[in-house]
Write a protein that binds this DNA or RNA. Sequence first.
RNA 1: UGGCUGAUGGUGUAAUGGCAGCACAGAAGUUUUUGGUACUUUUAGUUGAGGUUCGAGUCCUUGUCGGCCAACCA
Length: 561
Amino acid sequence: MTELTASTAEEKALNFIEQIVEEDLRAGKHGGRVLTRFPPEPNGYLHIGHAKSICLNFGVAQKYGGGTNLRFDDTNPVTEDTEYVESIKNDVQWLGFHWKEERYASDYFDKLYELATLLVQKGLAYVDDLPAEQMATLKGTPTEPGTNSPYRNRTVTENLELFEGMKNGQFAEGSRTLRAKIDMAAPNMLLRDPILYRIKFAHHHRTGDKWCIYPMYDFAHGQSDAIEQITHSICTMEFVPHRDLYDWCIENLGIFPSKQYEFSRLNLSYTVMSKRKLLQLVNDAHVKSWDDPRMPTLSGMRRRGYTPQAVRGFCERIGITKNENLIDVGLLEFCVREHLNKIALRRMVVLDPLKVVITNYPETQLEICHSENNPEDPESGTREVLFGRELYIEREDFMENPPKNFFRLAVGKMVRLKSAYIIQCNEVLKDTDGNVTELRCSYVENSKSSQDTSGINVKGTLHWVAAQTALPVEVRLYDRLFQVENPSAEEGDFKDYLNPNSLQVITAYAEPALQTDAADAKIQFMRKGYFYKDSDSTPDKLVFNRTVGLKDNWAKVATKA
RNA sequence: UGGCUGAUGGUGUAAUGGCAGCACAGAAGUUUUUGGUACUUUUAGUUGAGGUUCGAGUCCUUGUCGGCCAACCA
């Protein structure tokens, strides 16, 4: 059995990154060592797109007996903060991965400065006094070559002095930069004398006020990889043009030859995935916070009740390629249901109550029924639920004029109340507006679950709660954040396409067990969906987030009719 | 108009010159005290045109279409 699973696992096709790693291993590269890194910038929260990268980086290393460093790419002190560092570490751990070492690009600022000096000495970098606007003009366009800066031919000595002056805070912010001397006519715009260092009198979350010059991404990332001796530096496709620079630095600095490989980032339907846009949603209060359950952030998904297993399973299924993609959010939801179905406790909660009176049941009697906690897991045992004369059922489980294939309640029809009795509806009570206010039913005395001798077969089974014991709870029903599949691809502002009904708050009536269930229990409200207790809950008022609804075939049938 | 990069069912992903497969979604059915789960069956695909080859999704030529690149962001 184990052998079978092992061989099936081996049969799963390798993605192109794994193929590269296997080739390198076969060739004996780096002595068979594999070391990757996950390099977030601590300027926002991690989202499901990062999860794809995390699973790839940690997954590949794990698979080939290597390790993964967690490295914060903290070279821009203006936008970065320790708050983000903590959330990122928390999210990576939540996903179930363990980094080999925790590093920061800022750990290497001294070394980076030294390397920059080396470049200057080799005549491959110079200090430029051009203001930003003029530099942009001289840069040219993709179709027209740029023009050399008038400062391009300063002597090594002068450059060395000026660069040191930059470091010592002798020049104003923005007044000077250190640039690589490559080729202002290069077809790749990034090779047109890219900026290596800029002056910023900003407080850094780790180095404080030690530095007033900070390296750019291109002069920090590859070098950090080299310092850590990363063997495979995996990033997303936007960085493909940077690879030329990455390799240029390694070659001219003579440092460890890490290699960069690119895969395409994840796009998910009905949401946005850029930190800039997510930050806007938070700042403009379209959502409550970074961990709002509607957000595609890992913290949002965690709060919503998604599990790490589900997220990892999703990342496994979507694969790794260089193709532009837009993954159906339905696939994510499938993965969530798949896991939750196996582990969630079943509970009965009525979201939209309709009162039912069992007219032939004693007034004050409450009767114990037993119901399984999870039919998928025999180990999970059973719990007690109380049956009584007055109950609530779901309003949508009753119809006055039902179609022939409606298996639920209607006048004259019978249904099973889950884990309790079969009942028959005898009468409908309405208010003056004609709204149904109450159902009068009778129960079949010898039809109790597990001791049913009635011989009656019913098509439908409903969830219910006894009115007397019903616990009111707040339930937050979430819908997709946006109304269109790909908000970023639409005309105008992406925020114009927000779904105004992405959150609906209701009061539901729950069986009492919910009160004592563990705070982090994953729960299925039977026939409705998976729910998870929100951190806003208090002892007086429980709050539940709908993680995802159950697949609902009846809804499909009903809308078709 | 330059450079880079990509194109396989509705979506995502396999195939490494040799039977186009898998998953999600869709459809039909079986089971079911959740119209859930499970199980069975099924619809649907190689970007166009040429070429090489016994044989092309794969190699070559040439179109078409998508994405990325002109922050002192990463």
